[in-house]
Write a protein that binds this DNA or RNA. Sequence first.
DNA 1: GTCTATAATTTGATAGAC
DNA 2: GTCTATCAAATTATAGAC
Lengths: 170, 170
Amino acid sequence: MANRVEDILNATERRVREAGYNGFSFRDIAGDVGITSASVHHHFPTKAALGAAVARRYTDRFLSHVEGTKDDRIVAAWREAFRRSLREDGRMCLCGVLGAEAGALPPEVIVEAKRFFEQGVERLGAADGGSGKAARDRGLRILATLEGAMLIARALGDPAAFDRATADLR
Amino acid sequence: MANRVEDILNATERRVREAGYNGFSFRDIAGDVGITSASVHHHFPTKAALGAAVARRYTDRFLSHVEGTKDDRIVAAWREAFRRSLREDGRMCLCGVLGAEAGALPPEVIVEAKRFFEQGVERLGAADGGSGKAARDRGLRILATLEGAMLIARALGDPAAFDRATADLR
DNA sequence: GTCTATAATTTGATAGAC
DNA sequence: GTCTATCAAATTATAGAC
């Protein structure tokens, strides 16, 4: 592969979304990519650095994916993005997984998950052109429903549960 | 303490809700309780058995706590139960944490988390006396919002976010 | 950038004495 | 039921050759 760093981040993202930050090892990632764990350490000196890099890339990628969406389509765009990744590979939001493990995460990893949620609250709140505290509270409620729906759908092993839980979201 | 098993379950519940199933060890629990890890193994031969026991007790205890609530107070009762544990010790739903790690859990642990969500969907759906598919979908949406709100409040380090996200829940 | 080798620690789990 | 002692494996991380 051309870009090893990208390979490592891809493998790590898959693993974290499957089993959490404490559910993968450097050797797991090394095996996925086809190198040794020492080589993974060459690119990411510590596990915290690797975790933070994955969370940062996830957030940047997600936000840029839904960027530019018209106000009245923002909620639908977020819902559809989560829905697809849930159906395509049965995995929930990376930052949602990290949030659940928050008490065990290195600070630099939490900070990135936090950013995802802060941005989500703000952008989902801006749907329908609203703004201010009431809009942010609405964004918070919508993001909570989306994250919780992924969580439950995953635990039940039933991706359709996400659709049913978020069908009326607005 | 009189009941060692209970001490072990209490310590384990605290640890899992703080750091997840992969975020605690037998030695952690032993240290919390004041015995050795070998003694923990005497009561729970494997980590999967300990995890399943904790999830089973959590679900039984939670359901019995909200049992008997009048239909029109069911949502409020669940919301208040989650809200209190979030404010009192900053911890989210144990089964919510387990759900996020679902891909890394032994089957006997997942099964218990699944039961919590199935029961929650059914009971929250029965609020206001409804029944059938539409009621279960409503229960699913409510439970998703509650779980997601805990997740985000925890990640943001802001318990009040739970209140704001679930204020309009019905 | 990747490897071999290895250090230092932690993990889940067991044997057997008391 | 609890302990000491221990095992085999896994973990994060580093040193140094190529």
